[in-house]
Design a protein around this nucleic acid. Structure first.
Lengths: 217, 217
DNA sequence: ATTAAAATTTAGATAAGACTAAAAATATAT
DNA sequence: ATATATTTTTAGTCTTATCTAAATTTTAAT
């Protein structure tokens, strides 16, 4: 049985492994979890003892298969709970992360399976992230950052890379939501901003915003 | 902010205060929480420091108003989650206690208010226990143990005193459910058993069972 | 009113998880 | 290649919540 703290580390390592390619560094984990590098060293030793992670001193960490599956299970719970909060309790998508961070640690296989059914087995959460099934498998919809899409083409807004409250509130304010069709109209080299067009309006977005919006391809 | 452990102690003290009349003893709490008396002493000192409990060495414990309200808030969460599990996720009433014990510690006022609305502001949980509102107020339906009801009279099964898995499974097996109309037909002095009659059948129940079934009066 | 029994508290340890400061290893720059 | 900077680990503390064993207080019994 994993503790709440272990689960948070596994999740962090999983996410870091997915972006960087090689073994995850102590400092990277510390930054992600907002803790000290020395605390990470302690925990990573413990995860290695439990065979949830591979760890070589000074060389970094990677998840074992068991570790990866545990991380996936926590991520599955997190995303199902977020879906519940938005679809059933009418939370807005910028409010649910902190609550789901708590709910994801509730221990009951049966609960999460029943929740999954209650939500009609959703494949993606309110931020467009894929929800793994109970075996840890998922299918990510093919998508590209708006930054990487050529001018003149268009796509459907599938997911957001940054799920921070600030960013989601920005999208709310500017009436951008998942499922919207977005067309790239213009690119301004000076500040790397983009002009995009949706059903309802035309707007300019910064590079910073653009790289966090993913369109179906 | 209260910790998970503090909340469990507050709940235990609340329940013990409600049955016994005077200050709650260290041993009683220890038994309820399944811990050692020395651990209780430690925690009770901490609760007193936080002004959640009144505590006099060797004399026992009682909740302060703040302590009582905190306990009520935890109980409210527990019962709302149980209602959710049974009414929305189709758990049976004997499966929900352990899961609700975890869910009751999730910290979010907004979550519990929205859950309350989602469930249509239920006044009683699946075991017939009253659900306090957000101010800690509730109304208990007037009821009496079957043991204290005279032969020949009848009532509606309102709640069960014992919510243990074993007892609830017994009721399931014998097709007794909250809301059933029950008539007391006979009393056998030898073993203090009772014969009762429901819509569907007549059956004999032990004293032990009878004292845990509460009928509206 | 003593004495025995039961309940309660204290003292001291342990485990998990986190922290600071110092030491050691690795990476970088000239 | 060596000095410097950065990263990582170790050693030692702290906090929370437990526990056992011993000491103390209260209760019950004669």
């Amino acid at each position: 049985m994993t503790t709440l703290s272990e689960e948070n580390y596994l999740k962090a390592i999983y996410h870091l492994e997915k972006q960087g390619n090689d073994a995850v560094s102590t400092n990277a984990i510390a930054e992600q979890i907002e803790t000290k590098a020395s605390s990470v060293t302690d925990m990573v030793k413990k995860l290695a003892e439990k065979e949830l992670a591979n760890y070589i001193k000074y060389q970094g960490v990677s998840l074992t298969e068991r570790g990866r599956l545990t991380a996936m299970s926590v991520i599955r719970k997190h995303r199902l709970w977020e879906t519940f909060l938005v679809n059933k309790l009418n939370f807005s998508w910028d409010e649910v992360h902190e609550i789901a961070e708590q709910l994801e640690h509730i221990k009951s296989e049966k609960l999460i399976d029943k929740l999954d059914d209650f939500l009609d087995n959703p494949t993606h959460d309110p931020h467009g992230d894929p929800i793994p099934d109970k075996h840890g498998n998922y299918t990510k919809i093919k998508s590209k950052s708006i930054l990487d899409i050529s001018i003149g083409s268009q796509g459907v807004l599938i997911s957001v890379k940054d799920s921070s409250k600030a960013f989601l509130k920005y999208l709310n304010k500017n009436e951008l939501a998942l499922g919207d069709t977005v067309k790239i109209v213009d690119f301004e080299p000076f500040d790397e901003s983009l002009t995009i067009e949706t059903k309802s309006k035309t707007m300019t977005i910064s590079k910073n915003v653009a790289e966090n919006l993913y369109l179906s391809v």
